[in-house]
Design a protein around this nucleic acid. Structure first.
Length: 318
DNA sequence: AAAACGTGGCT
DNA sequence: TAGCCAAGTTT
């Protein structure tokens, strides 16, 4: 079946200080896979602002923060506004965190705005204003986890990293493992698969990362995969197995209505809409239940998303 | 390691 | 309609 797709483990550049193994001979099937997906990418990749030749590392980094759990279509306009307003990390760092939260708009998970603002500050202070090249340095920035560090290093600087996001995980689950969906949490086996398939050549690896992600986003989608358009349908383990349905525990579901998250969202929406401080009464109006409302507001203050002023007045953090 | 953390479009 | 899903990170 697909066993020879992953018989030549290579090292992820995540372990960069260690000597890079001389180009291990990739299996012929892996090489074919690389070519098919990368060629497909060349013909079908979307023209996204953060992928253009003139896009800098900062543009890439802003996009990666915004794209965490948020669809491309919603990110596009906000990303454009951010880059126009804050063309460099130092520009954002010079603003108040509250302005970052306000400009985040309705992208969701506004703590990302706070973390991106803090990351910009760290970049301005510790990295001379330039987005760092090293995976470890990126990982040390607030809001940057394993995925985002690899994505920025790979997409912005062409470095060799396993970029394992939900799209890539799904592509590998199907093409390599032969199942409909990846596990709920990333496993060591998935990391091994990704590492074994990572092209030895740095530039090719970066291209492969973007290409597999795009394939998952456009063709090998979660709901209704377009296998008829897939460049690797002929060697996809899942297809060859007859496209069996998902087995095992139900996929991660999220409840929202009635949760603290919903209340937080409403409270913050009021704060964002107001240019200045907001009286308690305006916040009280968003949710009927006082205990939950107070808990949500406390949480926002705790997170640094809201700043309490004297006598029951609140605002976005200055 | 499980759960919290927003928002909106699609089926 | 109700649930699924979207380039995850943090605690």
């Amino acid at each position: 079946m697909s066993t020879d797709l992953h018989h030549t483990p290579e090292h992820d550049a995540t372990e960069r200080p260690a000597p890079e193994p001389a180009s291990v001979t990739a299996s012929p099937r892996a090489a074919v896979l690389h070519d098919l997906v990368i060629d497909w990418f060349g013909a079908h990749a979307r023209d996204l602002p953060w992928r253009r030749p003139d896009a800098g590392a900062w543009s890439v980094m802003v996009s990666e923060f915004m794209l965490q759990q948020t669809p491309v279509a919603r990110v596009l306009p906000v990303h454009e506004q951010w880059l126009a307003r804050w063309p460099r990390p130092a520009d954002l760092a010079a603003e108040s965190p509250g302005e970052a939260v306000r400009a985040w708009g309705r992208l969701g998970y506004p703590r990302r705005a706070l973390r991106l603002h803090a990351a910009a500050g760290a970049i301005a202070q510790r990295h001379g204003g330039e987005v760092p090249h090293e995976h470890a340095e990126l990982l040390a920035l607030p809001g940057v986890g394993e995925y985002t560090a690899a994505a920025v290093a790979s997409f912005a600087y062409g470095r060799r990293h396993t970029v394992l996001d939900t799209n890539v995980r799904r592509v590998f689950a199907r093409v390599v493992t032969g199942v409909a969906h990846p596990p709920n949490a990333t496993t060591a086996a998935e990391r091994r698969t990704a590492a074994s398939l990572l092209p030895a050549d740095e530039a090719t690896a970066a291209r492969w990362a973007a290409a597999t992600m795009e394939l998952g986003a456009l063709v090998c989608t979660a709901r209704s995969p377009q296998c008829g358009q897939c460049p690797v349908a002929a060697l996809c383990a899942w297809r060859l197995a007859g496209s069996p349905p998902h087995e095992g525990p139900p996929r991660r579901g999220q409840t929202y209505a009635g949760t603290d998250r919903q209340v937080r969202g409403r409270l913050l929406a009021v704060l964002r809409a107001s240019p200045g401080p907001v009286p308690q009464a305006a916040l009280d109006a968003v949710w009927h239940e006082p205990v939950q409302r107070a808990r949500a507001l406390d949480g926002l203050v705790e997170d640094g998303l809201v700043e309490p002023l004297a006598h029951g007045v609140y605002r976005l953090p200055a």
